[in-house]
């Protein structure tokens, strides 16, 4: 019973991991930028959710009306900057790391380093759940899973069915050739940066729903989120979703049957194995790349 419950909540929490990882994966795969600042955007998204919900007494989910456009602009601006600088893959990592530590410090200066948590009257979701017999579906993770599914489905359809999507896949494969066929790489990548920023707003909102915030949380996401990106296959949105679920289930089950302390051990050992057996990612099959 415990294992079933752990599998279930793990899979649902995997939605949050996927939501955090999707943007990172796409910018890496399509634009060749390892954007650590994405973690900063998620953090700001979470704090904005907290702030807007608390001061305007808005339902936390409705704060997306504010945070999504704000993060879209922020994401697009960062992408515009990266484009101007023409960075290599690894230098993009360093520049975005610089941006990340700036973001964390700014967050700390604005909201203090102490824990921030939406109080129970503002955020009714935190403790709610849907029960199915003994099995329970926490509402926050249902929201995470649902949003992740929407984002993934949307991204998949856009990339497959629209001109912009096909153009992006072309960029991912060969930027020069795509340019020769009239794909405006600059404008598209800024657009993509904006969309990725918007997903950071979603992830931030979901995180704030069920967690206390401190500026330092951003670092704690690194391990799991990168694991999801790699397992899913860089640039593979659908793969990211599957990998998120897998990571959630794996750590949930290991925590339940062995020990929470063993979860990272099993998870990261599994990642090394996966990398060796399928270096292109476990779920890499016809995504953006």
């Amino acid at each position: 019973m415990n294992v079933i419950q752990a599998t279930l909540t793990g899979a649902l929490i995997g939605g949050l991991y996927a939501l955090m990882a999707a943007g990172l994966s796409v910018t890496w795969g399509v634009l060749r930028i390892i954007n650590l600042a994405h973690f900063g955007l998620i953090l700001i998204g979470a704090y904005l959710t907290f702030q807007v919900a608390t001061s305007w007494h808005l339902d936390p989910v409705l704060t997306l009306v504010v945070t999504v456009p704000a993060m879209f602009v922020a994401g697009a601006a960062i992408q515009w900057l990266f484009d101007r600088l023409r960075l290599t893959e690894f230098n993009s990592l360093l520049v975005s790391f610089g941006l990340l530590i700036i973001t964390i410090q700014v967050t700390s200066n604005i909201w203090s380093a102490d824990f921030r948590r939406m109080s129970a009257d503002v955020n009714p979701y935190a403790t709610q759940s849907v029960a199915l017999g003994r099995l329970v579906f926490p509402v926050t993770t249902l929201v995470a899973f649902g949003l992740a599914a929407l984002v993934v489905l949307g991204a998949h359809l856009v990339l497959r069915r629209t001109f912009a999507g096909r153009a992006m896949r072309a960029i991912a494969q060969d930027r020069a050739v795509a340019g020769a066929f009239g794909v405006d790489h600059r404008r598209l990548s800024v657009l993509l940066g904006g969309v990725v920023g918007a997903t950071a707003a979603l992830a931030g909102m979901v995180f704030a729903l069920s967690n206390a915030l401190t500026p330092d949380t951003a670092y704690e996401w690194f391990g799991t989120v990168f694991a999801v990106v790699i397992l899913g296959g860089i640039g593979e949105v659908v793969g990211t979703f599957a990998a998120g679920i897998l990571v959630g289930v794996l750590s949930g089950v290991v925590s339940a049957v062995w020990s929470p302390a063993a979860a990272p051990f099993v998870l990261f050992s599994a990642i090394i194995l996966a990398l060796l057996l399928r270096p292109q990612g476990l779920f890499a099959a016809g995504g953006v790349r």
Binding site: N2, A6, G10, I13, E220, G248
Partner: peptide, 16 residues
């Protein structure tokens, strides 16, 4: 139950 300070998913602990 011993858990690492980096724990993020509390559901398995709660279920136990």
């Amino acid at each position: 139950i011993h858990y690492p300070p980096t724990t993020t998913d509390w559901a398995p602990i709660a279920a136990q």
